[in-house]
Design a protein around this nucleic acid. Structure first.
Length: 248
DNA sequence: AGCATTGTTTCACA
DNA sequence: TTGTGAAACAATGC
């Protein structure tokens, strides 16, 4: 369920366990996940190089290797594993093998993750957990679309996915259907605070599915604060849960 | 069987 | 120009 918190945990795994190791071989044979690269193309760019640093903005990860930049995206179901044996069913869609015998893999049942050279970061807004207050107001608090759709727009701010959006709006007490441009500055500041807190909590607890609202949703969820029956519907094209009493 | 799903991209359309 | 909704992508789970 990768959103910003899962991506950050993946970044830390790379940082803590894979840096300064030399790439001896690369499996880039899955041309769907490694799109648009031909088999062997990523390998040719990386073999012999050393992982130097691991970075993240929103849900996009990248690693410096002293040459071309290696970009990784977890997609809908991906995660990064280090020094684990190959997954069954070919779920390791991309892998680095180190000269010390270890390996780093993008493990992804659904194949919607990506491994690319020179990832395009230009289309991403500032990281959702780091956007300044003025930045957040200007980028998120505009437009006629629902505020939830705005939060999910990675070019506005990067990193918020479907579950983190619901959790943040619930914490801030804001109806996900309200037009983004109609939120007041105090509401936007409160939403920014909620996004940061929800993100921080999710990183610490292990992922977005640990959110207070998220764990209560199914089967007939009630608001963790007031006990009202949660409302559900489609907002911004995505299944959405909110408290009809507190999120006005 | 049919529906859902954590993400992204593209498209037709208003 | 903005925004929306749906479809596509792949694979799994209920």
């Amino acid at each position: 369920m990768p959103e910003l918190p899962e991506a950050e945990r993946a970044r830390r795994v790379i940082e803590e366990r894979a840096l300064r190791r030399t790439i001896a071989a690369v499996d880039d044979s899955d041309t769907y996940v490694c799109r648009p690269h031909a088999p062997g193309q990523i390998a040719a760019a990386l073999v012999g190089r050393r992982l130097e640093s691991a970075h993240r903005r929103g849900k996009t990860l990248w690693a410096e290797v002293g040459g071309p930049v290696l970009g990784l995206h977890l997609g809908m179901a991906g995660r990064v594993v280090v020094d684990e044996g190959p997954a069954p069913h070919g779920w390791d869609r991309f892998a680095l093998e180190f000269d010390d015998g270890g390996r780093l893999a993008l493990r992804d049942k659904r194949r919607l993750g990506r491994a690319v050279l020179e990832p395009d970061l230009a289309r991403l807004g500032p990281d959702a957990a780091e956007a300044s207050r003025p930045d957040f107001r200007a980028r998120v608090g505009r437009g006629a679309g629902p505020i939830k759709a705005r939060l999910l727009d990675q070019s506005a701010i990067a990193g918020v996915g479907n579950l983190l959006a619901d959790e943040s709006l619930w914490r801030a007490g804001i109806d996900p259907r309200r037009p983004a441009g109609e939120l007041s500055e105090p509401e936007l500041d409160g939403l920014r605070r909620a996004v940061r807190a929800a993100t921080r909590d999710a990183i610490r607890k292990g992922g977005v599915h640990t959110g207070a609202l998220i764990v209560e949703r199914l089967p007939a969820g009630r608001c963790p604060r007031c006990g009202a029956a949660l409302a559900t519907g489609k907002v911004g094209g995505r299944t959405t849960w909110w408290c009809p009493r507190e999120q006005g």
